[in-house]
Design a protein around this nucleic acid. Structure first.
Lengths: 153, 153
DNA sequence: ACTGAAAATGACGCGCG
DNA sequence: CGCGCGTCATTTTCAGT
């Protein structure tokens, strides 16, 4: 992971469909070694995939909700079980295990509040071991970034 | 936005570098009309871009922190000013305007706690109009998804 | 369907550490 | 000495018309 690798990763975060030729020029390499580095970055799982950025509203997901979940038990088994269950919920875009009261933070998308209510009732609250929930609604996203900061190196 | 468009968007979220040929086959179209739809989806900003998915840890960003910010005033001007300021912070990967006490939720990445402290001191707390802050630390990401749920249609 | 461009692959020599 | 770059060439595949 040298400076050129970081440039490659950065360029690909900014434009995931850039060609190897353009990428090579951008980072100051010729195409073949650039492609070799790209292969390595994927093998090492620095780059784990590629994705289109989509406007959720245009797909009908107008609502974003953050849900704090506190589990009854916070041992490994309880957390693993919750994790397996939450992986099956497509509405959950992000899920973080937090410090402190060792609760869990979810970012959930939904079509509207009715759909979110259905998610809570039929999905989230069906998961055993939940002590309590707290939902906070987002009015809008001010920032949604896909490019990590420059690692100082 | 019909069912085929949704399939296209879904496939591109799953693999942002899929070729038009493979995409066409996947959604049951021939390449040319598939490419036309793709152009339209980009023009309509349903698809806003493409990005590589990167493992933050492998780039040295081992720490994720959620920061709740409460502003002194919650009028349009104060929020706009905060938004402009936060856009300049590369460490802020997401920022949501919330309901309730109309505060703001940030997801911040940092190299370590020292770097996060520097961000708080030199960046975030330099923004005027902040009444208070509350930081919550993530132990790890359980789920990080880039594919929106299927819109029922 | 066609044409130009790009990707994937491999071989080879070179230079810098 | 060896790793990584550059160059070149080839074949296959893709994009755009």
């Amino acid at each position: 992971m040298d400076q050129i690798d970081r440039k490659i990763v950065r360029a690909l975060q900014q434009d995931g469909r850039i060609t190897v030729l353009d990428l090579a020029e951008k980072v100051g390499l010729s195409p073949t070694p650039c492609a070799r580095r790209l292969d390595r970055l994927r093998r090492d799982e620095v780059i784990t995939g590629y994705s289109a950025q989509v406007d959720p509203e245009k797909l009908g997901f107008g609502v974003t909700i953050f849900v704090s979940v506190e589990l009854e038990k916070q041992d490994r088994n309880a957390i693993d079980a919750f994790e397996r269950a939450i992986l099956r919920c497509d509405e959950v875009m992000e899920c973080y295990l937090m410090t402190g009261s060792r609760d869990i933070l979810l970012r959930v998308v939904a079509r509207d509040l009715t759909a979110f209510d259905a998610f809570l009732e039929n999905r989230l609250m069906q998961i055993p071991g939940i002590r309590n929930l707290r939902s906070n609604f987002a009015l809008r996203a001010m920032v949604k970034r896909d490019v990590l900061p420059m690692a100082t190196g």
